[in-house]
Design a protein around this nucleic acid. Structure first.
Lengths: 162, 162
DNA sequence: CCTTTACTCTAGTAACCAGATAGGGTATAT
DNA sequence: ATATACCCTATCTGGTTACTAGAGTAAAGG
């Protein structure tokens, strides 16, 4: 189960990736846009900052912005940050292996074997999805007016009508 | 995260699949073999029985046994039984869809889209793994004396030595 | 039939954690 | 200077997980 923390974090990051004009976005605005309790979001954004995903500016005109390119921020990092290892059981984790107390002989444990497969499948998805690629995927499924305009601009760059 | 309930259930089922000589296995023995608190296991086995995965016999010589062929018992059913839907968020579930309260426009929700992919990947593993296939997989990785004998018996059926 | 065996079922509880809030501190821009 | 907006610690609370107690009931075997 994905925690609200991780869920809110991803939503906020996607919104920030869309916002990107160089200027930061305030907690309050982000909270309103994504229907997230403001104080809770504050806590989440702080975590993202301390992990190098976001940067912030204080004072008037301040707020949060992405610390690096959206194409280089992967869901796997975000989910692990808030929810811990991806593996359903600690003994199947690649990044944070812990032996389980029960379990006489780990080498013949069917649960571990099956859960390793689940972990690998999950990791493949989350470590293969960046903010940028996810945004593209959403656009492809449900083109908005804005995204269509971007597409046209890419295809016919000389037409800067208006 | 896989709950202990689901984990214990799978371990117990695998043990029962290995035991299979038509005669049932007692809770106490199963609990000792798999290092599971007996009373807790009792509760779990009851759940498996009520869901048609196990059957039981009361009285002396009684216990639990599989209700159907191990090749026809899939991990997906067991995990869903104890831990609910596989999807990390309810709005990405195939079998138990629930809209989330926050989320203005589900159609453009990146979280949902990514988590649908995670769900599908997880379901592919768990709904594709039966007790029988999992047991075979374990055997293939770490052949025990017993499993090797079974293999030899399959390959050279006329040699029934001893 | 009656005793033993072993499953059935209802409650309940302790520990833990996710989600959320309060409130004061600190840096920055104007 | 002062308003703005992030920074940080502490705390609450309701729900879930893991587990236990104990009385009840069906079946087998003598």
């Amino acid at each position: 189960m994905l925690s609200k923390k991780a869920k809110y974090a991803i939503k906020a990051l996607l919104r920030l990736a869309d916002h990107q004009h160089g200027e930061p976005m305030r907690i309050a605005d982000l909270a309103r846009a994504e229907q997230i309790p403001p104080k809770f979001l504050e806590f989440i954004l702080l975590g993202l900052k301390n992990n190098g995903v976001l940067q912030s500016r204080k004072g008037k005109g301040g707020g949060y912005l992405l610390a690096r390119d959206p194409a280089n921020i992967y869901l796997g990092q975000i989910v692990r940050m808030f929810d811990g290892p991806l593996a359903p059981v600690p003994c199947a984790s690649q990044t944070a292996y812990v032996r389980c107390a029960d379990c006489r002989n780990e080498a013949v444990c069917g649960v571990r074997l099956a859960m390793k497969e689940v972990r690998d499948a999950t990791a493949k998805v989350l470590d293969g999805t960046s903010l940028a690629s996810l945004r593209r995927k959403v656009d492809r499924l449900t083109p908005t007016e804005a995204s269509l305009r971007r597409k046209v601009d890419r295809l016919i760059p000389h037409v800067r009508a208006r």
